[in-house]
Simulated assay, not measured.
Amino acid sequence: WMTLAVNSLYRECWMVKHLLKPVMSVCLTAFSLTGGSISEPVEVQTLFGYAMGTSYSVKLVSTLSESRSLQMGVEGVLADINGRMSTYLPRSDLSLFSAAAVNSPVPVDSKTIQVVERALQIAALTDGYFDPTVAPLVDLWGFGPTARQSVVPDLVELETLQAKVGYGALVVDTVAETLSKTAPRALDLSAIAKGYAVDLVADYLVEQGFSNYLVEVGGEMRFSGTKPDRVAWRIAIENPDSTSRSVFGVLEMADGAVATSGDYRNFFELDGIRYSHTINPKTGYPVAHDLASVTVVMALCIDADAYATAFMAMGKALTLQLAEENNLAVLLIYKDGASFRSVQSSQFTAQFGLIDI
Rank of each mutant, 00 (worst) to 15 (best):
S110P: 01
D305P: 09
H277S: 03
E117A: 15
Y56G: 04
L60S: 02
V42H: 07
A191Q: 00
L28G: 13
P281Q: 01
D109T: 12
E269Q: 14
S211L: 11
W141F: 10
L9M: 12
P105V: 00
T260Q: 02
A310L: 05
A232L: 13
I355S: 07
V138L: 08
W1N: 10
A304D: 08
S86D: 08
V215Q: 06
N82M: 05
R222L: 10
S37V: 07
N266M: 08
L179K: 02
T174C: 14
W1T: 07
V156R: 12
T3E: 15
E252C: 04
Q351G: 03
G219I: 04
R185L: 14
E216S: 15
R118T: 08
V44L: 07
G195L: 05
E207V: 08
G35V: 06
V343P: 02
D203P: 00
Q45P: 06
P132T: 09
K194F: 11
E43K: 11
S211N: 13
L200D: 03
I333M: 09
L9R: 12
N280F: 04
V16Y: 15
I355W: 06
I113D: 00
L19G: 02
A123T: 09
E75W: 07
V16C: 11
P22V: 09
R230V: 07
V294Q: 01
A236H: 11
M52T: 02
E220I: 13
N239W: 09
L89S: 11
